[in-house]
Design a protein around this nucleic acid. Structure first.
Length: 807
DNA sequence: ATCATAACGCTTTTT
DNA sequence: GCGTTATGAT
C-alpha cells in the first residue's frame, strides 16, 4: 500500500536492530547479514565469537529482519512512530517493539553452529545461554564430529550400522589396523599403520568406497599402493563387522547418509535454516561437503575463518575451502574483521610482519587502537634447562599471578624441561596434551566394559576386557573362539555367549560363558532403566576389576582405583549436565573429548600447551619456547614451501595469543631424542622487525670470549636472504667425537668398540656371525650382522657390543 | 601369568 | 631419553 512507509519502516527497523548490539561497524554488518552465503574473514582477536553469539541472538530475536526489505503486512504510521520513539530512546523499547521488528524469527533448533573443538562449542553454548537464557540450549552448537555422531545415531541403520555403533579413537584405529596388517601378512615396517590409516583418510576424503579405492589403486600398477588399499578395505570391513566407526568415518558416513538418503537430507535441510561454521580454514574436503549438504535447503551458510590461522593441513584440512568459497558461492558476501582487541601494537606488528612472508593468503592486516605496548623479548638460552629456568624465573619475578602466563611449544616433548623448572620454583602449572585421563589404561578398561555392554559386537573393546582382570581365559582359548566366530560368520560375542556348546573351547568355555552372562546381565539392568551410577557400581562389582587391583597394594594400584572412581563422577556429572543423558550419550562425549576441553581459565596455574592447542585462547603473557630452526619451524617442513607456510601460520597463531607481553625463547643447544644438537634461531624471529624486539642474546658476549672455539660457526649470524637447499645445514648434529666436542660427552658414553665390516663376531643371543654393514649414526652405529642359521640382524653397535666379542 | 630384558621408534600438531 | 612392544624366562 504505502511504498514510502514500507521503505522508511525497513530502514528504521534496521537502525533499531543495530542499536541492540554493541559492536563495531564491521562486526555489526556480519551480525546483520543473515541471508545467503557469507564469508566472514575474522582475524585473530577480532571478536569473532562475540559476532557469532550476537548473530545467533539476532536470528532468534529478529529472524531475517535485519537483512530484508520485507515488511509485515498492515504496518501503520502509528507503528512507525512508536519505532522512531524507541530509536530516539524515548520510553523503554518494550517487547512489543521487538516483536514489531521481528521477521520470521528462528527457533533455536533451526540453527546449527559447527565448531572444531569441544571447547569452542562449549564456549559458544555458554555465552549463548548467558545472553539468551535456557532456550539457547536447543541451538545445535557442537563439533563436526559430535554433529555427525548425532545425525548417525538417528539413522545409521540406513547404512547397515546399528544405532548403538561404537566410536573408535585413534588408539583403537591403530590397534585394529595393526591386526589387519598382521593378518594380511604385511610387514609393519614397510606398511606403517599410520600411513595406511592416512590412506584410509584419503579415500574417504575423495568419497570413494573401499572397493572403488582398491580398484583405483590396482590400476596404478604399484603393488605397494594396491596392498595398502587392500589393507584399507580390510580395515573398513573390520570396523563394519564390529559396528564401529572411527573419527573419519563419522564425517564420511554422515556425508554419505545425507547424500544418498533423500529423506534424511530433506529433514535436515528443512530443519536448519541457518548454518554457521567456525574455523572454516581448518575444514577438510569432506567437512566442506557436509556443510554444503546441511545448508542446502535455505543456503544460509555463514563460514567464519582466518586463512592465516589454518594449521591443520596435516589432518586433511584444505585452505582451498576458504580461498575458493567465493567461487563456490558467487553471490557470497565477504566481510573482514581486522580490528584486533586483544594484543598490543608491537605484538600485532610482529605477527603481521611474519605472516606477510606467506604467499597463499587472502590478504588482511590486523590493526589496533591500543598502544604499542612493550617490546617483544628474545631470550637466547644456552640449553633447554636454561631456557626453562628463564621462563620460571620470569614468572616468579613478575609479581603476577601464574595464570597470566602461557608457555607454548611446538611439540609435547618439549614440556618436560619447562615442567621441571616450574616445579623447582614452585609455580603452579597445568599441562595440556599429555596423557589424557581417558587414555589411562584402567580408564580405558572400564570404558571398554561400558562399550561392550552398549555394543557387544565390537571385538576390539571386547578383547581388551575378556581376560582383564584375569579370569583364566588364555590367549589360546581366545584364538579358538575367534576362529569359530569367523567360521560361523558371527560376532565373537555370540560364540562366548554359547561357549559351552563348542567342545573345542575346552576349559575356557565355562569362563567365557560366565563372562558373556555377566555382560548380558548388565545389558538387562540397563534396559530396565537402572540409574547409571548404580549400574556403574554393579559393573565394577561383577567384573571384579577393582577387586583385582586391591589384591596388590602398590601406590600405582591405588592411583588406578582412584581413577576408576573418578570415572564414575565423570559419568554422574555428564548425566546431570545433559538431563536424560544415557550411556550412549556419555560414551559419545568421552570418545570425542579432548584434554583442552577442561581448561579452566580461573585456575591459578600457568598453562603449558602446544601452539596448536592454544588456538582460540589468549593470555596476558605468552612464552614461545623452542624458537630454534629445525624445531620451529620443524625440520620436516624446511625445504617445502607449503609446509613452511603452514609453520609460519602456526607462528602467527602463537604470537597473536599474547595480549600484553610476548617472550620468544630459543636455546643454542638442546637435547632431543637423547642427543644434543646445536640450533640457530628460528627464521621466524628474523622475520620480526628488529626494532620490535629486545634481544637478550648472551651469545655475542660468549662468542667474543671464545673466538677460538671451532664450534662458533653454529652461532654465526645467518644471512638474511637465503636460497633453497638449506635443509641439511640448519640443524647441526654435534659430531660425537670430533675435536671440538666437550670432553664431558666423551666421558659419559663408553667408547664404541672398533668393529669393521667383515669382522667375525660371537653374540650371546644369536651366535656366530659376520658384520655385513656398518652405518654410523649419531654417536653410535647401525650394524648389520649375518648370523649363521639365524639370518641378518640389524643392531645398534653400542648395545650389541655388550653382548658380543670378536672372534 | 608375570616379569625382565632388549629393540625400536618417536616427536609435529587433534577429533 | 623415554615409553612401548616383542620375546623369552620363571
Amino acid at each position: 500500500m504505502n511504498q514510502n512507509l514500507e521503505t522508511r519502516f525497513a530502514a528504521a527497523r534496521s537502525a533499531f536492530i543495530s542499536k541492540q548490539f554493541r559492536l563495531n561497524p564491521m562486526q555489526l554488518q556480519a551480525c546483520m547479514a543473515t541471508e545467503g552465503p557469507l564469508l566472514l574473514l575474522a582475524g585473530a582477536g577480532s571478536g569473532k565469537t562475540t559476532v557469532l553469539i550476537n548473530r545467533v541472538a539476532n536470528l532468534l530475536r529478529y529472524g531475517c529482519a535485519s537483512d530484508s526489505a520485507e515488511v509485515p503486512v498492515g504496518i501503520s504510521e502509528g507503528d512507525m512512530e512508536r519505532l522512531k520513539a524507541a530509536l530516539r530512546g524515548e520510553g523503554s523499547a518494550d517487547e512489543d517493539i521487538h516483536r514489531l521488528c521481528a521477521l520470521r524469527a528462528v527457533k533455536p533448533w533451526q540453527v546449527l553452529a559447527i565448531t572444531f573443538t569441544n571447547k569452542a562449542a562449549g564456549e559458544l553454548k555458554e555465552r549463548l545461554a548467558a545472553k539468551l537464557g535456557p532456550e539457547a540450549n536447543d541451538v545445535w552448537a557442537m563439533t563436526f564430529h559430535a554433529t555427525c555422531a548425532r545425525i548417525l545415531r538417528r539413522d545409521a541403520d540406513r547404512l547397515g550400522f546399528g544405532k548403538s555403533f561404537t566410536i573408535y579413537d585413534s588408539a583403537d584405529s591403530q590397534s585394529v589396523m595393526k591386526r589387519v596388517l598382521k593378518e594380511l601378512e604385511l610387514d609393519e615396517k614397510s606398511f606403517p599403520p599410520r600411513q595406511v590409516l592416512a590412506a584410509c583418510s584419503r579415500y574417504k576424503g575423495a568419497l570413494l568406497t573401499p572397493d572403488e579405492f582398491v580398484a583405483q589403486e590396482e590400476r596404478s600398477g604399484d603393488i605397494r599402493r594396491k596392498r595398502t588399499a587392500m589393507a584399507c578395505a580390510a580395515y573398513a570391513k573390520r570396523l563394519k563387522d564390529a559396528d564401529a566407526m572411527d573419527f573419519d568415518d563419522l564425517i564420511y558416513f554422515a556425508v554419505i547418509l545425507l547424500r544418498d538418503c533423500q529423506e534424511v537430507r530433506e529433514y535436515y535441510q528443512q530443519k536448519f535454516r541457518y548454518v554457521l561454521v567456525d574455523e572454516y580454514q581448518d575444514t577438510s574436503h569432506l567437512q566442506y561437503e557436509l556443510c554444503k549438504l546441511l545448508s542446502g535447503g535455505y543456503r544460509n551458510l555463514c563460514v567464519v575463518g582466518d586463512d592465516d590461522q589454518s594449521i591443520y593441513k596435516f589432518r586433511g584440512a584444505t585452505i582451498e575451502n576458504i580461498l575458493s568459497f567465493q567461487k563456490e558461492y558467487p553471490d557470497a558476501r565477504v566481510i573482514r574483521l581486522e580490528q584486533n582487541y586483544r594484543s598490543t601494537g608491537n605484538i600485532l606488528d610482529a605477527a603481521n610482519a611474519v605472516i606477510a612472508n606467506n604467499t597463499a593468503r587472502m590478504g588482511k592486516n590486523l590493526w589496533t587502537q591500543a598502544g604499542k605496548g612493550e617490546l617483544l623479548y628474545e631470550y637466547v638460552a644456552m640449553s633447554e634447562d636454561d631456557e626453562a629456568d628463564f621462563v620460571a624465573r620470569t614468572i616468579q619475578q613478575s609479581g603476577r599471578s601464574p595464570k597470566d602466563f602461557a608457555v607454548l611449544y611446538r611439540t609435547n616433548a618439549q614440556s618436560r624441561s619447562i615442567e621441571q623448572a616450574l616445579k623447582r620454583r614452585k609455580i603452579n602449572y597445568r599441562i595440556f596434551g599429555g596423557t589424557r585421563f581417558f587414555d589411562r589404561a584402567e580408564v580405558k578398561d572400564i570404558l571398554a566394559y561400558l562399550c561392550t555392554v552398549a555394543n557387544p559386537t565390537d571385538e576390539t573393546r571386547l578383547l581388551r576386557i575378556l581376560n582383564n582382570p584375569p579370569r583364566g581365559i588364555g590367549a589360546a582359548g581366545v584364538e579358538k573362539a575367534q576362529t569359530l566366530a569367523r567360521r560361523e560368520e558371527k560376532p565373537l560375542f555370540d560364540i562366548l555367549r554359547n561357549a559351552t556348546v563348542f567342545p573345542e573351547l575346552g576349559r575356557s568355555a565355562g569362563r567365557m560363558q560366565e563372562f558373556a552372562d555377566m555382560i548380558t546381565g548388565l545389558q538387562n539392568d540397563l534396559a530396565q532403566g537402572m540409574p547409571l551410577d548404580e549400574f556403574y557400581d554393579k559393573l565394577i562389582e561383577k567384573s571384579g576389576y577393582i577387586r583385582a587391583l586391591e589384591d596388590k597394594h602398590s601406590d600405582e594400584e591405588l592411583a588406578r582405583i582412584e581413577n576408576v572412581h573418578e570415572l564414575k563422577s565423570s559419568i554422574v556429572k555428564s548425566v546431570e549436565e545433559n538431563q536424560g543423558g544415557d550411556l550412549y550419550a556419555y560414551l559419545d562425549e568421552v570418545a570425542l573429548y579432548s584434554d583442552i576441553d577442561n581448561y579452566d581459565e580461573n585456575a591459578e596455574c600457568t598453562v603449558l600447551m602446544t601452539m596448536h592447542a592454544a588456538k582460540g585462547l589468549e593470555f596476558p603473557v605468552v612464552f614461545i619456547v623452542g624458537a630454534d630452526d629445525g624445531l620451529f619451524p620443524s625440520a620436516l617442513a624446511i625445504g617445502d614451501q607449503s609446509e613452511m607456510e603452514e609453520e609460519r601460520r602456526l607462528c602467527y597463531v602463537a604470537i597473536t595469543r599474547a595480549k600484553e607481553r610476548l617472550y620468544i625463547c630459543e636455546a643454542s643447544q638442546r637435547m632431543l631424542y637423547g642427543r644434543t644438537n646445536s640450533y640457530i634461531r628460528s627464521r621466524f624471529i628474523d622475520e620480526i622487525p628488529p626494532e620490535l624486539l629486545e634481544s637478550h642474546d648472551l651469545r655475542s658476549r660468549r662468542q667474543a670470549e671464545s673466538r677460538c672455539y671451532e664450534e662458533r660457526d653454529a652461532y654465526a649470524p645467518r644471512p638474511k636472504q637465503r636460497t633453497g637447499g638449506y635443509a641439511s645445514s640448519t640443524v647441526r648434529v654435534t659430531p660425537p667425537k670430533s675435536a671440538a666436542a666437550k670432553p664431558k660427552t666423551v666421558l659419559s658414553t663408553p667408547a664404541v668398540p672398533d668393529y669393521k665390516v667383515g669382522d667375525l663376531v660371537e653374540h650371546s643371543a644369536f651366535g656366530v656371525g659376520t658384520i655385513a654393514k656398518l652405518t654410523p649414526m649419531g654417536g653410535d652405529a647401525l650394524v648389520e650382522i649375518s648370523f649363521e642359521g639365524v639370518g641378518t640382524k640389524k643392531l645398534m653397535l653400542r648395545v650389541a657390543a655388550q653382548h658380543m666379542k670378536k672372534k
